[in-house]
Design a protein around this nucleic acid. Structure first.
Length: 270
DNA sequence: CGCTACCTGGGT
DNA sequence: ACCCAGGTAGCG
């Protein structure tokens, strides 16, 4: 599943292997609800455009195209992009096929069907995705403890829920939130208003470290070329319920916070 | 700010 | 036959 490291890896791969190429025909294979605008218009608008750049905002992939168009792809829980030879068999969960020049396909897949893509001019797309409401990027130059404090310390919700809110901070998914809170030694059930500036500094450092490590290991899933990342088993608490905390040996606990699975050490996260 | 719906493949 | 999933929009 896709959190920021996985999305970032795909974006880097797109820059390497798709930027500079032209999109020919586009096949929309699955329901119109996945797309904006509707399939016929979507495909017609894309045909013949070249990909100029690929970028990421929160968990949105943004590809700029010739003719001042922006193409967004969001993986939600299970979506992904693959670059494969056109001759390769089409998997059942394929949502959209973008035929590229040179005989390759960029394929957008999702076995769950939550993933989304949209295409519009940059202003319209930003409005549609509400990109301007997103919080600062945890991985952007200049993200630091002061910035994190400004975003969370006056808010009343539960700490973990705040960290997952992309309008508060753009960058954390469920796994990376659990890992960051463990590294910082913080109980995910705490309130943000109770955190000292020293603790917020520790948390900001942990967040950046967890995300950068995920990227360095090339994420937890397959990249654009189908190569598996090495981050899946590199975790301290996520999906380690009952196993010993790497820091103190206490069994890891799982609970629900804001209807999300939450893994933490009941002894050393306070 | 918290909760639920969205939807299907895979695990129990 | 359940039940669940690493995300988000939209509602109360």
């Amino acid at each position: 599943m896709a959190e920021v490291p996985e999305v970032e890896i795909i974006v880097r791969d797109l820059c390497e292997a798709v930027v500079g190429r032209a999109i020919g025909a586009v096949d929309v294979l699955l329901p119109a609800s996945v797309l904006f605008p509707p399939p016929t218009e979507y495909a017609a608008l894309l045909a013949g455009r070249a990909v100029l750049d690929a970028d990421r905002r929160a968990k949105y992939i943004l590809m700029s195209l010739t003719g001042d168009l922006l193409l967004s792809v969001h993986f939600m829980l299970w979506g992904t992009l693959k670059l494969v030879p056109s001759a390769q068999a089409v998997a059942a969960e394929t949502l959209v096929i973008y035929h590229l020049d040179g005989g390759d396909d960029l394929r957008f897949l999702d076995k769950l069907g939550y993933a989304r893509t949209a295409l519009a001019d940059p202003i319209t797309l930003a409005q549609r995705l509400d990109l301007d409401s997103l919080g600062p990027e945890a991985l952007e130059e200049g993200f630091n403890a002061e910035m994190l404090a400004r975003q969370i310390s006056h808010r009343r919700g539960v700490l973990k829920t705040l960290l997952l809110n992309q309008r508060v901070l753009a960058g954390l998914g469920n796994r990376d939130a659990d890992e960051s809170l463990w590294q910082a030694g913080l109980d995910p059930r705490r309130t943000a208003t109770s955190l000292s500036s020293e603790v917020i500094e520790r948390l900001a450092d942990s967040i950046v470290r967890v995300l950068n490590e995920g990227i360095a290991l090339r994420g937890t899933q397959r990249d654009l070329f189908g190569r598996l990342g090495r981050a899946l088993h590199r975790r301290d608490v996520f999906e380690r319920t009952g196993e010993p905390c790497p820091r103190c040996g206490t069994p890891i606990t799982r609970t629900r916070i804001g209807s999300r699975n939450t893994h933490f050490c009941p002894n050393c996260q306070r």
